[in-house]
Design a binder for these strands. Structure first.
Length: 300
DNA sequence: GACCAGGCAGAAC
DNA sequence: GTTCTGCATGGT
């Protein structure tokens, strides 16, 4: 069923633009912190909170169109973290040559403020998977359990991220049919925990990072890396620092030459060295080493 | 066929 | 406490 924007303000086509500095949209939407944006050749298309969105850069402006209420503009600005002072954030980066080099190479790379449920579910599906595979699994999940959203003229079908209640009520066979393998029971249990209120996002936002981290790691399948992703990308903890295989290799190479530090030692090192904006530092380093070692197709 | 991927859990040491 | 191993699946 193809839906078209109606005349009501809740499903109308809206647009706006912001003047932005140091905002690399391609790097930000393609940097492995989020998996559902797709490049259409001239602009990015995605869905936030059930609203289809298209984004592009033109000169010093960031242009947005969406199908939904006019007030969605504020939601979008929050999601894109447009109010951030990147100069001030970069000033808090460590002065180490490896970090400064990564920061220079990734100027304009931003962090997003995502929906915590979508973020948790996405990174639960990310373990031991490559980004293109993660994207395919999530797309399949949305097609099967999400709802079809209104389309921009000429657009392909777009689906919402499924609600936790929908995932909680789904059979493991249905989940596994999306190619998620052993992660299926982890995803369903997380969906149950969220839908039953055992994971309370507002409470986690107000908690200390230590408490929020511990509460997330109670969930099966959520360890140090996935917990840090949720803390950083959706709950507002900029000091959170996901350490994955890329960060581990890069940090070991730069700071432990000839050594073979354990994952735990690398995590502790990053938390200590990267400072209060460790999440931004980590994102720059991640993007930098991925570009260097395996050129990223940002517009793919 | 071996190895790896935005990891994690449980067993072995 | 740290290290090793299996886990589903798909790509190289």
């Amino acid at each position: 069923m193809k839906l078209t924007p109606g005349k009501g303000s809740g499903s109308a086509l809206h647009g706006c633009s912001w003047r932005v500095e140091h905002y690399n949209l391609d790097a930000t939407l393609g940097s492995g912190q989020v998996f559902r944006w797709r490049w259409l050749g001239r602009e990015w298309e995605g869905a936030i909170g059930g609203c289809p969105v298209r984004l592009r850069r033109e000169g010093d402006r960031l242009l947005a169109r969406w199908i939904g209420p006019a007030a969605f503009r504020r939601t979008l600005a929050c999601y894109l973290r447009l109010q951030e002072d990147m100069e001030a954030i970069l000033a808090e980066f460590p002065k180490d040559p490896p970090i400064q080099e990564a920061a220079r190479a990734c100027r304009g790379l931003r962090l997003l403020r995502q929906d915590p449920w979508e973020c948790l579910a996405s990174f639960l599906l990310s373990s031991n998977k490559q980004i293109p595979q993660i994207r395919r699994i999530i797309e399949c999940l949305c097609r099967r359990l999400g709802r079809e959203l209104p389309r921009f003229p000429g657009s392909n079908p777009l689906f919402s991220f499924p609600e936790p209640e929908a995932v909680a009520a789904t059979s493991l066979e249905t989940l596994r049919a999306c190619g998620m393998g052993y992660r299926a029971p982890f995803l369903r249990e997380a969906a149950r925990a969220v839908s039953e209120g055992r994971i309370d996002w507002e409470r986690l936002r107000r908690a200390s990072i230590e408490e929020a981290r511990a509460r997330l790691q109670i969930l099966p399948g959520v360890g140090p890396k996935i917990a840090e992703c949720v803390l950083l990308y959706s709950l507002g903890f900029d000091q959170a620092c996901p350490v994955d295989v890329w960060i581990r290799r890069a940090v070991a190479e730069a700071y432990f030459p000839g050594g073979n530090p354990s994952a735990k030692r690398i995590r502790e090192f990053c938390a200590r060295r990267f400072g209060p904006r460790a999440g931004f530092v980590q994102q720059c380093l991640y993007e930098y080493v991925r570009r260097r070692n395996a050129p990223v197709q940002l517009n793919a």
